[in-house]
Design a protein around this nucleic acid. Sequence first.
DNA 1: TAAATAACAGTAACTATTACTATTAGCTTG
DNA 2: CAAGCTAATAGTAATAGTTACTGTTATTTA
Lengths: 126, 126
Amino acid sequence: MESIKHRYSRQRETILQVLRGTLEHPNADWIYNKTRRIIPNISLGTVYRNLSQLVESGRIIRIKDDAVIRYDANIKHHDHFRCTSCGRWYDIEILDNTVIESFNKKHKFHIEAFNLELEGVCEICL
Amino acid sequence: MESIKHRYSRQRETILQVLRGTLEHPNADWIYNKTRRIIPNISLGTVYRNLSQLVESGRIIRIKDDAVIRYDANIKHHDHFRCTSCGRWYDIEILDNTVIESFNKKHKFHIEAFNLELEGVCEICL
DNA sequence: TAAATAACAGTAACTATTACTATTAGCTTG
DNA sequence: CAAGCTAATAGTAATAGTTACTGTTATTTA
């Protein structure tokens, strides 16, 4: 990762700071609106392009809602839990590499990445 | 599940047969085109509506690509693996309920559903 | 400090999905 | 089994999220 040559841009760094400054798992539009408070004339296209670049360079990760793509600045492996009652997203830990490695040993697949999404009811709502 | 009252419709049953007849994990548009060979004037909206109903009633499941929703007629729990080289989707088994149950015991979350997606390189491509 | 070009803002286009409307066709009940 | 109720339909318009395009700006490098 991070092999692609990217020039510095204030827009990209601001987007990253915005995302690092929240525990929500926002989508592009949320990030766009927050970033606009800092760079009022930033364009939505710039947000999308930079989010993709940040994913590409491994500085953030993508998570997938039913339809919308959401982002997370926490790049160490973790799983995601969505509360069906309040809609919050949580970072949780269930899967680790050992599960994957043992699968790789048994089969002729080579697993490079995995994404686990859970849903149910969170502690607050219970 | 299957508590909702649905009238019979040839369109819905045909869609289900089309999906049961493939091991691909097609999206709505693919299903629409296949179904059109049987019911030429079926509408895309009908396909979407029925896919949602079939999910609702537990006869099929949804899986999520980066952007597009895909469907699977195999409703027994399994995980999905996508080959980054050829793009194929595979049904595989890694997670089972015991992993989830043990998590539920340790935490105050109540997990109701989970979806694991993996990517890497498949046997054929290796 | 000038040339090369990545990144930008602004906007148009695209794609997947949902909503709307008038019509058709399963189901229920007298 | 015919009449009435309304789910489901076809066809189309609208929406939302995302990507592509264009002329301009700004970072890098030599």
